[in-house]
Simulated scan of single mutants.
Amino acid sequence: MKKFKKTIKLTLSALLALCILFLMSACANGDSQPEQFQATEPTTVQPTTMSEEEINDQKLDRFISNMKLEEKVGQMFFVRCPDEDAVQQVSEYNIGGYILFGRDFDGKTKDEVINCIQSYQDEADIPLLIGVDEEGGTVVRVSSNPNLREAPFLSPRDTYSSGGWDAIKQDAEEKADLLLSLGINVNLAPVCDMTSDEYGFMYDRSFSSDVDMENRFVRTVVETSKSKKLGTVLKHFPGYGNNSDTHTGIAYDDRDYSEFENTDFKPFYQGIESGADCILVSHNIVNCMD
């Protein structure tokens, strides 16, 4: 749609320029002005006011057009931070970003983490995405280190139980403040999966098995994070359900497609509408889709 609008604007501008050239040529040749122009005062055409988003889009288009092919390819990769030569590989492969895990924070002070992340950014010609899984509960890469937070973040379920929706919003704010203070600009959260099996792999990480509750949770986390300028990632599309752990084996999901439409897809729709930046796809083999 934006390209279509730009095409229309360029076409109208070209037509206006041709009209002006035609009139100037007519006057230069001694021809009288067309009747509709004789009694009117000269008018000034005001430039079209562009929105900030349109201006940024143009800047981005120009920036990308000047990138080398190697840079464009490298920017497509958001990779796990390697044990060795992490700084060197930033410029060597022109990567889009690093995802940090527990080992990257273990035993480090806040200043050590900040300096380490900054060393990656200093090496990058294009600013890096620095991501982490800080869901709360069983997945806390950062707050599991007592040097970085006094106690790990609670799971979404426990957070809600302790203080309702106010606690969920405050939790998202505290996570954003902590991560951004370290130089982390993307949180691989919120978890959009719903499961009814309390013994299931995803149960401790999911917020609710109720669609309306899950939607509100996703919206709250995404909007709060966005207001802080922390990137968010919806996971694990298309919805994990009650399936087994795909980190240790293969999970086959035999549910009907209609179940995804009526339940699992909805928190992802909500997250997209709320302004989430990315979607992470699960390892599950979903037979009705795959």
Rank of each mutant, 00 (worst) to 15 (best):
N185F: 03
D253H: 04
T49M: 13
R62H: 13
T248A: 13
S91G: 08
T263D: 07
E173F: 00
P146Y: 00
K169M: 08
V79I: 14
L230I: 12
R62Q: 15
S162T: 13
V45D: 02
E150W: 00
Y93K: 12
E112L: 04
S25E: 08
N187E: 04
G241P: 09
T40G: 06
F105V: 07
A189L: 04
E41Q: 12
S206Q: 00
S65M: 10
Y252H: 11
L18Q: 03
Q36R: 07
Q38H: 03
D106R: 06
N215R: 09
R205K: 03
G231C: 09
R216S: 11
V142T: 14
E112K: 01
Q33N: 08
D204I: 03
K68A: 15
G164W: 01
I279Q: 03
D85P: 02
E134M: 07
A251F: 04
T40F: 06
F22D: 13
E54T: 14
D212C: 05
T263Q: 08
E173W: 00
E70P: 04
G231L: 05
Q118S: 11
F105L: 06
F78A: 03
T220H: 03
L148H: 05
Q75S: 14
N287Y: 07
C192D: 01
D212A: 15
D133A: 10
E174D: 15
P42D: 06
N262A: 15
I279Y: 01
V221F: 05
L179Y: 01
V113W: 04
E123S: 15
G249F: 00
V87A: 12
A276Y: 00
K5C: 11
V191R: 00
D177R: 08
H247T: 10
F22Q: 10
T7M: 13
C27K: 12
P47Q: 08
S181I: 07
L179A: 09
S25M: 08
A189D: 06
K5F: 14
D212N: 15
E223A: 11
F101S: 14
E52T: 13
Q36M: 13
T138W: 01
I279A: 05
L280N: 04
P238D: 08
E35K: 13
V281M: 06
V222H: 03
P82W: 01
R141F: 04
T248H: 12
R255P: 08
N185D: 07
E35A: 15
S196E: 12
Y120Q: 06
I8T: 13
C116I: 02
V218T: 09
T224L: 07
F201L: 09
D125W: 01
S225F: 05
F265W: 04
D125A: 12
V45Q: 07
K228M: 07
P34W: 01
P146S: 11
D177G: 06
Y269Q: 10
A86S: 15
